[in-house]
Every structure is written in C-alpha cells, then in structure tokens.
Simulated scan of single mutants.
Amino acid sequence: MADTKTLTDHDDIRNWAAARAGKPALADPAPGMPGEEPVLLIAFGQQAYMDTDEGADPIGGLQLVEWDEWFRLFDERELALVVSEDVPGQRDEFHEIVRR
C-alpha cells in the first residue's frame, strides 16, 4: 500500500476531493450498526452525480450534502481523513475517515 497522510484542514480535504471529482455525502448507517447517526463519506463517479432538477432523492441511502454540513459533522465527531500520498500521474481515490 502507498504511503498515506492524514488531513483535518477543511481546505486540504476540499481540494483533495475536488481533484478527484469527489462530493461530500452522508449514508444511512448499516443495519445492525450501533447508533443511528449518518455515515460521512466522499462520493466519486456516478455516486457523486445528483440531478438537482429531480430534487434530493437519496438512492441506496446516499445523500449528497453541502461541505458546510459535512464539515460540521466531521468536526463534531473529531474525525480525520486518511488519504494516499499523491503520486505523479495518478489520482488515487483511497480514503478512510477515522477518529483523530
């Protein structure tokens, strides 16, 4: 596995996601998981597309949100984003949201 770095700065996270066309999102917790709080994630590819003409109809429990809401939860839960170090010519989407 490639070397990783941990991001907590909002601008760094936003820039990392933007470079990969990622969007902030929330997902329903998996059945049987403790707690009922939505899960923070960054959506890529088709998951990052939402037809705003149709309204915010979450598919499979995934809902795209604004960065402000995502970062509010991110900070309240004291989380950090672990990503792969950038390698020239590659845009790795690996990421993991962990406790600080």
Rank of each mutant, 00 (worst) to 15 (best):
D3N: 15
K5S: 11
K5C: 15
D9H: 11
D9R: 14
D12S: 13
I13R: 04
A17K: 13
A18F: 06
A18Y: 04
A18K: 14
R20I: 06
L26W: 10
D28R: 07
P31E: 11
P31S: 08
G32D: 11
G32W: 03
P34H: 06
G35Q: 02
E36I: 09
E36F: 06
E37L: 14
P38A: 12
V39Y: 06
V39K: 07
V39H: 05
L40M: 07
L40S: 08
L40A: 10
L40C: 07
I42K: 02
A43E: 00
A43R: 00
A43K: 05
F44T: 04
F44L: 00
F44G: 00
Q47E: 14
T52M: 10
D53V: 09
G55K: 06
D57T: 07
I59C: 08
G61T: 01
L62H: 01
L64H: 04
W67D: 03
E69H: 11
E69T: 13
W70S: 01
D75T: 15
D75R: 02
E76Q: 15
E78F: 02
E78G: 15
V83R: 00
E85G: 03
P88S: 03
G89M: 04
Q90E: 13
R91C: 06
D92L: 03
F94D: 14
E96V: 15
I97P: 07
I97Y: 01
R100Q: 13
R100A: 15
